[in-house]
Amino acid sequence: MNRAPCGDEEDLIRGITSAHYEQGDISGKFFAGSKLSVNRLCITDLQISLEIFKRKLTNPEKGVSLKGYATFNHSNLKDETVRYVSQNKDMAADFRIIVEQAPLSDNLGHAESSSRSCQ
């Protein structure tokens, strides 16, 4: 099913768990990959997004806890992807990461990253 992409000017927020964070450093792949969950700040503001993250990402029985959050602009994420791809000769030149709307019943601002080639 095709999902609508988030707007280029949208600000997005992603929770940082203890799996992504250690002693001040954050995983270099924190924003890479497909189906990474983020929230759209235009739908769920910072406070609501953090409440959702605390509920969904503070999970001691699974061995993780919420350590922080990162906010970023959708178009900046896409620009960074283009820059990264241009520096790596073994990646398809048309490889892109975009964020698509993926609302959930208990989290209407939910969105997911999607990686794809344009061809």
Binding site: I16, G63, L66, K67, G68, A70, F72, N76
Partner: peptide, 18 residues
Amino acid sequence: MPANALIHLMEPGVRGGS
């Protein structure tokens, strides 16, 4: 990650598991 992403850290959490 995007070079201009803003990172905010919270208090230490609990780790565990078997």
